[in-house]
Amino acid sequence: MSTTTIPVRELTAADVTAAPVLPDVLPARRERGAVMMFIYRHPTIAAGGFLVALIIAMAIFAPWLGTVDPTALAPAKRTRPPSELYWFGTDMLGRDVYSRVLYGSRVSLIVGFSVAFFASAVGMAIGLISGFVRILDAIVMRIMDGLMSIPSILLAIALMALTRGSVGNVILAITVAEVPRVSRLVRGVVLSLREQPYVEAAVASGTRMPKIIWKHIVPNTLAPMMVQATFICASAMITEAILSFIGAGTPPTIPSWGNIMAEGRALWQVKPYIVFFPAIFLSVTVLAVNLLGDGLRDALDPRMAKRI
């Protein structure tokens, strides 16, 4: 069935977002001990980056990690506990939970990274515009208010009803809900920054707006944005699980951590492993993304950098 196999190519968004790890690691090759130094200085980046890279690798190489077809049913072998044959047991339809969890990482990563990327980009643009252009501010913020006041869950169910459950719809629904959040945050920072003496000075000295934004505002919004983006990425993965719980998430033909847990949740008192394994993977991934974000924040912050 064409809908069940997720092409590896779709992981581009993941690669893009994971990229910032690389520049930090590369210079380390030049000197001996530099790697150790880097880990010593940025233990959170190292730990988070390592875990994220590991999970990305797991997602890409899922077919070669001892998995079987994650969608193959075997109702006669349903709800088997973990064993040598079924490492993580089987679910209510006799599908192999280990295979589903490994393949499921693809959906969670795609959803997390895509939402973080799109929401940050769009939200940043809107936030900057509304923070600087007073005339647009009121209008843009009212539209954002309107969008934001519709709970993302309602939006996701409506979208599912409109077409049907799909990964694209999940990404769209979560992104729409996150954009106003980012733009509000950016706008808040801008509002506070533009009153700063150095920005006022720049404006007074006739520096052009784009330059002010690029030189003074954007760098200062990056740190909070980075924290926000990691939070969005992590929260998007969780929201994907919640949408599956409500029945408006990833379609059941595509295994995702969210729908493995949602399908197994009724049995969690008697067959806890169906929920346990995807929950552990989801938690570790979210934790890793957050560690990475925290580390990046500390490292990127110019004032922090000066101190080091």
Partner: peptide, 25 residues
Amino acid sequence: TKAQGDVTADLLKKIGMNVDYQALD
């Protein structure tokens, strides 16, 4: 209905049919 739908998708696949599984409420 969900359990039956999942089994049917598997069944149709086995007899060489091309399934468009539409997850709906």
